[in-house]
Design a binder for these strands. Structure first.
Lengths: 220, 220
DNA sequence: GCAAAAGTGTTGTGTCTACACCCATGT
DNA sequence: ACATGGGTGTAGACACAACACTTTTGC
């Protein structure tokens, strides 16, 4: 499944099935594994027909579903993946494919609704303790823009003040030194930031039960 | 993979392979999926030959590995599971099966070493933000006994003082009201506790970026 | 000057670690 | 009494949320 914040909402890319079972209903894009192919290669290959692979800023495995009743005819195992597309990408998608807000999903084929919700939960959890925001955000952004992305993904308002402090304290963000020009209505120009790394890092390692000893050295 | 704290160490149940490939080397117990069977049913069935299923206090999926080079001959996908056995269980294991400390693994077949280490990391992380300790501990225990279990699983010393306070504050533990008789060397008898629930619960929901609003009501 | 948007200062709260101290038992 | 192990009190560090206030722009 591919998620992106579009028009201020967290949306998922859905594909309208042409064939039975579940003809005409919506489904997560994907397909069969070819011999000798890894699961990740396979999902990238199938997604390439829908989204340019270069726009996938992050891809991780969610879960493998094996319940026999998840498919009506043949028994099928499915390994779900979560892919994220930065909000400044606008992939040209085929006619049978559309973005849908995760908060207002149409009826989905198979167990895809539960997979889509699981993917959203995975993203929400990781926004809290990793730098995964890099995969939702453009290369450079103001804190306000980032707040809107986090707000859309988390489903609740986020304070720009505290978001900035948390992400700077954790050294997830760094300043570019540049400013964004203010809009036609005025307002102070926002400073532009970027994510320090574009690979997943855990930034809040252990909530509790940390190893004993003096505070970890600050590495400058 | 099955983990248990035995003799003060986190250990994993390994099975000595009789057949090629990797004959005589150690491997995680498991086996093929039968048609119409879920992955969880399958791992439970295969583990039943090694460990009494009633002793598996927790079982969760880890990850599906699909690299073609992970097996020498045939291409095999494998879905890894993490199972936990309470420290007071002592399953009678077959002759070809032995417990090994995860910190001193023998050379393992396939990619099983990396799976074993991934399982240990999953356990360590969840000890921090869930009640997963219920699956390592006996039905009743003193805080000191629980501290030793957490210490073995986490790989570092744990303070009984703080462990007690964290787990009581989160309402993960509850007192049984009873005491454990002191040992032959004396000492104050320890109070006996138990885990309030024996199903996995997240007890430290979000590290940061909590939804706004007044503090959540305390539910007595 | 005024509205709009961004950013900083500051206070309060809650959770955790560390450590000193007190309690209950056996010999 | 003293050793051994269990439990409590308390202080300090830290991270976070909330909110007031200041800064910088367009009109």
């Amino acid at each position: 499944m591919v998620l992106q914040v579009r028009a201020g909402e967290l949306q998922v890319l859905l594909w309208q099935r042409a064939q039975e079972p579940f003809a005409d209903s919506w489904a997560l894009p994907g397909g069969y594994l070819e011999p000798g192919e890894t699961l990740e290669q396979s999902i990238r290959r199938h997604l390439a027909e829908k989204v340019d692979v270069r726009e996938l800023a992050h891809l991780e495995q969610l879960e493998t579903r094996s319940e026999p009743e998840r498919t009506p005819d043949e028994w099928q195992l499915a390994t779900a993946y979560l892919g994220l597309v930065p909000s400044d990408a606008d992939p040209r998608v085929p006619d049978d494919t559309e973005w849908h807000p995760v908060d207002a999903l149409p009826p989905l084929a198979f167990d895809h609704e539960s997979i889509a919700l699981a993917g959203r939960e995975r993203l929400r959890a990781k926004l809290s303790y990793t730098n995964i925001g890099f995969a939702l955000a453009p290369g450079e952004f103001t804190i306000s823009e980032l707040r809107d992305l986090y707000g859309a993904a988390l489903g609740h308002d986020v304070s720009a003040t505290n978001l900035q402090r948390v992400l700077l304290r954790r050294r997830v963000l760094e300043s570019t030194g540049r400013l964004r020009a203010p809009g036609p209505t005025g307002g102070r120009p926002g400073a532009l930031f970027r994510f320090r790394t574009h690979a997943l890092e855990v930034t809040d390692q252990f909530a509790v039960l940390r190893p004993p000893g003096p505070a970890r050295a600050f590495v400058a």
